[in-house]
Lab assay of single mutants.
Amino acid sequence: MALNTPQITPTKKITVRAIGEELPRGDYQRCPQCDMLFSLPEINSHQSAYCPRCQAKIRDGRDWSLTRLAAMAFTMLLLMPFAWGEPLLHIWLLGIRIDANVMQGIWQMTKQGDAITGSMVFFCVIGAPLILVTSIAYLWFGNRLGMNLRPVLLMLERLKEWVMLDIYLVGIGVASIKVQDYAHIQAGVGLFSFVALVILTTVTLSHLNVEELWERFYPQRPATRRDEKLRVCLGCHFTGYPDQRGRCPRCHIPLRLRRRHSLQKCWAALLASIVLLLPANLLPISIIYLNGGRQEDTILSGIMSLASSNIAVAGIVFIASILVPFTKVIVMFTLLLSIHFKCQQGLRTRILLLRMVTWIGRWSMLDLFVISLTMSLINRDQILAFTMGPAAFYFGAAVILTILAVEWLDSRLLWDAHESGNARFDD
Results as ranks from 00 to 15, higher is better:
Met1Thr: 00
Leu3Met: 06
Asn4Arg: 07
Pro6Gln: 07
Pro10Cys: 06
Lys13Tyr: 06
Arg17Leu: 05
Ala18Tyr: 06
Gly20Ser: 06
Glu21Ile: 06
Glu21Lys: 10
Gly26Ser: 09
Gly26Asn: 04
Asp27Met: 07
Tyr28Asp: 11
Gln29Gly: 06
Cys31Phe: 00
Pro32Ser: 07
Gln33Arg: 11
Gln33Cys: 09
Asp35Ile: 02
Leu37Pro: 08
Phe38Pro: 02
Phe38Arg: 04
Phe38Lys: 04
Ser39Cys: 08
Leu40His: 06
Leu40Glu: 05
Gln47Tyr: 04
Ala49Gln: 05
Arg53Pro: 00
Cys54Ala: 00
Gln55Ala: 10
Lys57Gln: 09
Ile58Gln: 03
Asp60His: 06
Trp64Met: 10
Leu66Ser: 07
Thr67Asp: 04
Arg68Lys: 03
Leu69Trp: 07
Ala70Glu: 14
Met76Asn: 03
Met80Trp: 07
Gly85Tyr: 04
Glu86Trp: 02
Leu88Gln: 02
Trp92Phe: 03
Leu93Thr: 01
Gly95Asn: 05
Ile96Thr: 03
Arg97Trp: 04
Ile98Arg: 04
Asn101Trp: 03
Asn101Phe: 02
Gly105Ala: 13
Gln108Gly: 14
Gln108Cys: 15
Gly113His: 09
Gly118Asn: 03
Ser119Gly: 02
Ser119Tyr: 02
Met120Asn: 02
Val121Ile: 11
Phe122Asp: 04
Val125Tyr: 06
Ile126Trp: 07
Gly127Ser: 11
Val133Lys: 05
Leu139Arg: 01
Gly142Tyr: 02
Asn143Asp: 15
Arg144His: 12
Met147Gln: 05
Leu149Asp: 01
Pro151Leu: 02
Pro151Ala: 07
Val152Pro: 05
Met155Cys: 03
Arg158Trp: 03
Arg158Ala: 11
Leu159His: 03
Glu161Trp: 03
Glu161Ile: 14
Asp166Tyr: 15
Gly171Ile: 01
Gly173Glu: 01
Val174Trp: 01
Ala175Trp: 01
Ser176Ala: 09
Gln180Lys: 08
Tyr182Gln: 04
His184Tyr: 15
His184Trp: 13
Ala187Gln: 08
Val189Ile: 11
Val189Leu: 13
Leu191Arg: 02
Phe192Asp: 06
Ala196Trp: 14
Leu200Tyr: 15
Val203Arg: 08
Thr204Pro: 05
Leu205Ser: 15
Ser206Gly: 15
Asn209Leu: 09
Asn209Gly: 15
Glu211Leu: 15
Glu212Ile: 15
Leu213Cys: 11
Glu215Met: 14
Arg216Glu: 13
Pro219Asp: 12
Pro219Tyr: 11
Ala223His: 13
Lys229Phe: 15
Arg231Pro: 07
Arg231Asn: 11
Cys233Phe: 00
Leu234Arg: 11
His237Gly: 11
His237Val: 11
Phe238Ile: 07
Thr239Lys: 06
Asp243Ser: 10
Asp243Met: 11
Gln244Glu: 12
Arg245Ala: 10
Gly246Leu: 11
Pro249Ile: 12
Cys251Glu: 00
Cys251Ala: 00
Cys251Phe: 00
Pro254Asn: 03
Leu255Pro: 04
Arg256Met: 09
Arg258Ile: 10
Arg260His: 10
Lys265Val: 02
Trp267Arg: 09
Trp267Tyr: 15
Ala269Lys: 02
Leu270Trp: 10
Leu271Arg: 00
Ser273Val: 14
Pro279Ala: 15
Pro284Cys: 10
Ile285Tyr: 00
Gly292Trp: 07
Gly293Arg: 14
Gly293Phe: 09
Arg294Glu: 02
Gln295Ser: 08
Glu296Lys: 14
Thr298Trp: 06
Ile299Met: 15
Leu300Ala: 05
Ser309Cys: 09
Ala312Arg: 15
Val313Asn: 15
Val313Ser: 13
Gly315Asp: 01
Gly315Pro: 04
Ile316His: 02
Val317Gln: 00
Phe318Asn: 09
Ile322Val: 11
Leu323Gln: 06
Val324Ala: 08
Phe326Val: 09
Phe326Glu: 06
Thr327Cys: 12
Lys328Ile: 00
Val331Glu: 03
Thr334His: 14
Leu335Cys: 10
His340Asn: 09
Lys342Tyr: 13
Cys343Trp: 15
Gln345Val: 13
Gly346Ala: 15
Gly346Lys: 15
Thr349Met: 15
Ile351Glu: 10
Leu353Ile: 15
Leu354Gln: 10
Leu354Met: 15
Leu354Tyr: 09
Arg355Ser: 14
Arg355Glu: 11
Arg355Trp: 15
Arg355Cys: 12
Ile360Pro: 00
Ile360Val: 10
Arg362Pro: 05
Met365Ala: 03
Leu366Glu: 10
Phe369Tyr: 09
Val370Gly: 01
Val370Trp: 00
Val370Thr: 05
Leu373Ala: 04
Thr374Met: 09
Ser376Arg: 08
Asn379Thr: 02
Asp381Glu: 07
Gln382Leu: 09
Thr387Arg: 07
Met388Asn: 14
Pro390Ser: 09
Ala391Pro: 01
Ala398His: 07
Val399Pro: 03
Ile403Phe: 03
Leu404Ala: 09
Leu404Tyr: 04
Leu404His: 10
Ala405Ile: 11
Val406Gly: 05
Ser411Phe: 06
Arg412Phe: 00
Leu414Gly: 08
Trp415Arg: 09
Trp415Ile: 08
Ala417Leu: 10
Ser420Asp: 08
Ser420Cys: 05
Ser420Asn: 07
Asn422Met: 05
Arg424Asp: 09
